[in-house]
């Protein structure tokens, strides 16, 4: 069926208003739109690693989810949902859970990059390798935002964070960003998708639906800007996402049963400065004498983009 933006956007909200996430938070946009991938009448159990999303959407005695929800701890969202899915399999097998009455039940878990790339990496890797029928969604804002903007392995090179502060001896984070979508693809699971927010949200909505309804393990990596951590003007979020794609910093791709598919190739690949200069965390790169840092960043973006093109051809 052709993608119908109006239809998708008119689906009921499964993350109710009234939660305590920041205005303009990319994480919330990611969650609301991933959950639009669920078909009407189907039910989800939503999991969550500790982070901004969890403390702001399930603050006792209030919960913002319309579906069942489980938060366990920071580093185990993968394993926790694996247990929920295991229970579902067992109870169905034993005739204790009748899905016909309830519609399909889907298992979707969310984690920030801290809970996914770093502390929850082992738990995620195990759950993916065992191929549980679940979707793990990383809303990647490139730092530990909940504890106050500390670097993660998802933080881009040279970003100014509170544990890689810029100073006379430091240009921000010295290392490259870990490429998690590729690592998860190497687990040989049925579906991996990388996406972010595009003007019509088609890319995210279609990938969410595929991820949710593909049998077996699926992983979605969503660049979800954080206005506080990235230090940009909050309404600029869509422009920042667009520039992330157009500069090839954040390519849109899928890996379906081991086959790499590039979903979008910019007609004119924009220079990385265009993405960097919108964000306060890269302000120091634009000081006189630091041009070489931007060159190094550009080189890294180019190298990875070429690598991706090779995988997709």
């Amino acid at each position: 069926m052709a993608y119908n933006f109006k239809e998708v956007m008119s689906r009921p909200e499964r993350l109710a208003p009234g939660h305590r996430m920041c205005a303009g938070c990319g994480g919330t946009i990611a969650v609301r739109n991933v959950l639009r991938g669920l078909h009407e009448g189907d039910k989800a159990v939503i999991g969550n690693a500790t982070g901004c999303l969890e403390v702001s959407t399930f603050t006792y005695p209030y919960v913002a989810y319309e579906d069942s929800y489980i938060h366990n701890a920071f580093e185990n969202a993968g394993a926790t949902m694996a247990g929920v899915e295991g229970a579902y399999n067992a109870l169905r097998r034993k005739g204790k859970y009748n899905e016909k009455e309830k519609g399909q039940t889907k298992f979707i878990t969310f984690g920030g990059d801290g809970g996914t790339y770093d502390i929850g990496f082992q738990s995620l890797s195990g759950a993916m390798e065992r191929n549980h029928d679940m979707v793990y969604v990383c809303y990647d804002n490139g730092a530990y935002m909940n504890t106050g903007i500390q670097r993660s392995s998802a933080t881009p090179m040279f970003a100014d964070t509170t544990t890689t502060p810029v100073g006379t001896e430091s240009n921000g984070k010295p290392q490259n960003r870990k490429d998690l979508a590729t690592i998860i693809a190497a687990h040989d699971i049925p579906y991996v998708g990388q996406t972010t927010f595009t003007t019509n949200f088609k890319d995210l909505h279609t990938k969410a639906e595929k991820a949710i309804y593909t049998p077996g393990a699926a992983f979605l990596n969503i660049m979800a800007p954080c206005p506080r951590g990235w230090r940009y003007n909050t309404p600029d979020i869509m422009e920042i996402c667009r520039l992330g794609i157009e500069t090839c910093y954040w390519p849109l791709f899928e890996v379906i049963d081991g086959k790499w598919i590039l979903n979008y190739e910019p007609k004119n690949k924009l220079p990385i400065e265009d993405w960097l200069k919108k964000q306060g965390r890269f302000k120091h790169l634009f000081q006189k004498g630091n041009e070489y840092l931007i060159e190094a960043f550009q080189k890294e973006v180019d190298r990875r983009w070429e690598d991706l093109l090779n995988k997709c051809n």
């Binding site: 159990v45 999991g47 489980i70 366990n72 701890a73 580093e75 185990n76 993968g78 394993a79 926790t80 949902m81 694996a82 247990g83 929920v84 899915e85 295991g86 229970a87 579902y88 067992a90 109870l91 204790k96 859970y97 082992q122 738990s123 890797s125 195990g126 759950a127 390798e129 065992r130």
Partner: peptide
């Protein structure tokens, strides 16, 4: 599972799901 931490984490998920 791939570790004891995940064993107890999955057990918590499973038991919460009614198993």
């Amino acid at each position: 599972v791939e570790s004891e931490h995940s064993a107890m984490s999955a057990a918590i998920g499973a038991e919460s799901a009614g198993a």
